[in-house]
Amino acid sequence: MPIIATVLFLAGIGHGNPNANNRVWAAPDPNRPQPSESRSSYCEGRFPDGFLTGEGTCEFPSGNRYKGALRQGKPHGQGRFVWADGTYCEGDFQNGRLHGQAVCFMANGDRYEGEFRHGKRHGQGEIQFANGGRCQGEFANDRLNGEGVCQFTNGTRFEGHFVNGVPQGFGEYRFANGTICEGYFDDNLLDGRGVCTFPGGDRFIGNFVQGVPQGEGVYIAANGDRTRGIWRNGEFKPQNPPKEDSEEDADSEDDDNQEESPTAAMVELTGK
């Protein structure tokens, strides 16, 4: 029944919300403070030009440490920077900041491996969280921005487009209970045309507003029975009783069924 499907759908969305664990979307910044505090009194090594250029080891009053290549007193090249709280990063540095390939181990147990630009995660990378979750994909300005995949500890998985670490654009959620929803997401919620398939084989194809069925839709039971109508705030509203069937009405209904078939709906949704 459509009402049951709505309940199952809402339950699935609730359990799959990645914002329930903020650490999934915002890992600790491994670049604080910037290792540009290099001074000759804190570093030792061979510096032919007298300007802290070459291989060296630095220990700072803050408790931070650096070992690796330096250029004019700043980490530049391959090196390892360790913060006082236990966070450490090793990889490519440029002008005192991570720039290029690097791997960072945060004090809370999280791990990031991938590309950096000017001290921030930028490019292809992967975050592995201490709680077992992980996200990989395109990073920009320290967050997922572009295509990515996140796997959550409760078994839920999202694959699609991200903006500032949040699902935004076309994507697909696969929930731990077996529900699969795909369509356009706005701030992590289905918003627009979407398709949800439930564990028993039932499906809902229709319009969503902020994650809730709203507007025209069709509920297709596993046995092929269809219920079409209007959904308001996730609840099915029966349409007016149909007029007596006629040959013309039957032909029109056949045409409507063809237009609202799962294949046609998916074509409209995916653009394929």
Results as ranks from 00 to 15, higher is better:
N141H: 15
Q168A: 01
A20P: 00
V103N: 08
R23F: 15
T263G: 05
F139M: 05
G165P: 00
D49C: 08
F152A: 03
Y88E: 13
H118R: 06
A20E: 14
E247Y: 02
G12A: 15
D255E: 04
E138W: 03
E182H: 04
Q128H: 08
D245M: 05
Y66S: 00
D49S: 15
E260D: 15
N95W: 04
D92Q: 15
G234M: 12
E244G: 07
A130V: 05
A250I: 03
R226I: 13
S252L: 12
Q214V: 04
S62C: 05
E247L: 10
H15K: 10
V195I: 12
G192L: 09
V103Y: 02
I4Q: 07
G54K: 08
R32C: 08
R80E: 12
Y219T: 11
P30D: 08
K237N: 07
V267A: 04
L8R: 03
F51T: 13
V7G: 09
G132T: 01
D202A: 06
R226D: 15
P28S: 11
E147W: 04
N145A: 11
G224N: 12
D245Q: 14
T197D: 06
V218E: 09
P199N: 11
R65E: 07
P48W: 09
N21Y: 13
F60R: 00
G54L: 12
H122Y: 07
G148V: 12
R203S: 14
P28M: 03
E138G: 01
R157E: 09
F158H: 03
D29K: 14
A102F: 12
G224E: 06
R97Q: 14
I3C: 14
C196M: 04
D251R: 07
G16W: 02
P35W: 06
E126C: 11
C43S: 14
G119A: 12
G169F: 02
F158A: 06
R228E: 12
E260W: 14
C89A: 10
D85L: 03
M1D: 13
M1R: 04
E235F: 06
R174P: 08
S38P: 10
V267F: 04
D245A: 08
A102P: 05
E235Q: 13
R23A: 12
G100Y: 02
P2H: 05
F204A: 01
F47P: 05
K243Y: 03
I205M: 13
G200W: 04
S40P: 07
E138Q: 06
T53E: 08
N141R: 15
Q128P: 00
P30K: 01
N108L: 05
E260V: 11
C135E: 02
L189W: 09
D142Q: 12
E147K: 15
H15E: 09
G194C: 15
Q94G: 15
E113Y: 02
L269D: 09
E248S: 05
Y66E: 00
R203Q: 05
S38K: 13
K74F: 00
H76D: 11
A140C: 13
E126N: 03
S41A: 15
A222N: 12
R121N: 13
R232P: 01
V149L: 11
G148F: 05
